[in-house]
Amino acid sequence: MMRKVMVTLAIIGFAFALLPLAFRAGVQAEPGALATEYLETAPRELGAANVVTAIVVSYRGFDTLGEVAVLFVATAGVGAMLTRKRLGPAAVGRRKPATEVLRTATGLLTGLIVMFGAYIFMHGHLTPGGGFQGGVVIATAVLLNVLAAPESHLAHGVMTAVEALSGAAYVAIGLLGAFLAWGFLDPRVMPTGSIGSLVSAGTIPLIYSAIGLKVGAELSGIIEALKGDRP
């Protein structure tokens, strides 16, 4: 009872701190100076049609690198926790086998889904979407396979290699920016090209591809670890 009162008080108190702020902020009429600067410089200097992508991958690319690291370390943590050797196989043989339809469909769809994912991350600088969204789509393909064949294991070694190498590639592209352009993660290593074409915005599509592969592999890793069937 006491506890309920305290929780109520805490929530009311927190609301008291938070709501005025949310209300007072109101709706802006104009973007701020910083936003305007991004909107004006991103297309001009980086040749990226999608300003958000330009910010995410380039101006604030360091954040994104950190974000990839977060996902990476979380995957490692989940893996370390849930795939320890002494845990052993948890539920092998207990699951209902998937239906024939699902298995056939999976075979057909996997390739398509992966290609769709790749499309999303390679066009991140032009259209909405990018490495993370593409990565999720790729992970969906993995998920589908898991559903279709619960006892099967993904080629774990391949996944690890994809994850590691795409991560290293991301860092390497970043370093190229430092050596060939003006700074770490500077996409202007390659020509920025004309806005709207696939080959534009410097190395942004490459970086997003690396991110896409890496995120896809990591998310698959999380799903697999949670499934808990890995030997």
């Binding site: 802006q28 973007p31 936003a35 958000v52 910010i55 995410v56 954040d63 977060v70 996902l71 979380a74």
Partner: peptide
């Protein structure tokens, strides 16, 4: 166009949230 900065931040926050 709208302000792109919060969008960029949210993208990061969402992924971190998943982690």
């Amino acid at each position: 166009m709208t302000d792109p900065v919060p969008q960029a931040l949210v993208l990061t926050a969402i992924v971190i949230g998943l982690a």
